[in-house]
Design a binder for these strands. Structure first.
Lengths: 141, 141
DNA sequence: TCTCAAATTAGATCTATTCTAAGCTTGTAA
DNA sequence: TTACAAGCTTAGAATAGATCTAATTTGAGA
């Protein structure tokens, strides 16, 4: 886990308590929180970050490439500090949102679309289904 | 192209002019329009469909499986009457949104994640980049 | 310490979507 | 025909996530 302050400095951004806290939180969570969830989590113990700042900061971090927006659900943006290419699993029942390693789909062959799309920047596989937990508890139906 | 009226009947839905028009429009377009674009298009010549009905109808069609919601952009839902499994290309510059045939990524091998996710319902590859047109016109940078 | 651009803030605003409650259509049965 | 019910459509209000605005605060360099 890289020091958030270092990452911010490398991008030429001032290191503020709010930015530090937001980036660190995103680095540490396995989740893909929404802006609203971040506001709630960050202010749980020590309220010092306004809603506007969370939105501003997330846009800034996205613009410099320190976080990534994930847009696979209706109505909400989620944020991910894992900026390496990777894939996602989404549970239809509980909404759980997991990272899947890039290596898992290493076999993915782009040659069939290379002629039509010569300038590809990013590829992502989205797997939807029911997670083990939901299946075990029988919520998945 | 299957008759929209037939599809609606098969799902036990009343065939109304609004539903017919919405489903037919989605079948005929290559695009993935938003609800708002549908309102605008449908009422261009003969205004007879309210915004609420477009939203209601899209939800109904989605619930019975006649259309699919596409949620790969911040802030908007798009709709697709192509309900066969397929993939998507999204242009970073113009926002263009193309279908990619399922066959293009036939090689996709799920065995590496089968243990972790035994109940998979749907897979989709999202390819992002710059389309030929935007690259040609130099907008892509 | 002083200065000023940059960051933060509360609250207003915007926009896509959903809700509400009323009115309209259609089909069926008397 | 008429009456009724079920389902569909509707305008406009309400909601929720995100953005904007204008004022205040912060902090890094002179």
């Amino acid at each position: 886990m890289v020091d958030p302050a270092l990452l911010l400095e490398q991008k030429g951004l001032k290191v503020t308590p709010q930015r530090y806290a937001i980036l660190r939180f995103l680095q540490q969570t396995e989740d893909h929180p929404t802006a609203d969830q971040l506001v709630e989590q960050l202010n749980r113990n020590l309220p010092m970050t306004s809603r506007a700042t969370v939105y501003n900061t997330l846009s800034t971090l996205r613009d410099v490439g320190l976080v990534r927006e994930v847009t696979h659900e209706a109505g909400v943006l989620r944020y991910d500090a894992n900026i390496e290419p990777h894939h996602h699993f989404i549970c239809r029942v509980c909404g759980r949102f997991d990272d899947i390693d890039w290596q898992s789909f290493q076999s993915l062959d782009l040659s069939p679309i290379a002629a039509r799309y010569p300038h590809i920047e990013n590829i992502e596989v989205i797997v939807r289904g029911v997670c083990r937990q939901c299946q075990a508890t029988g919520n998945g139906q």
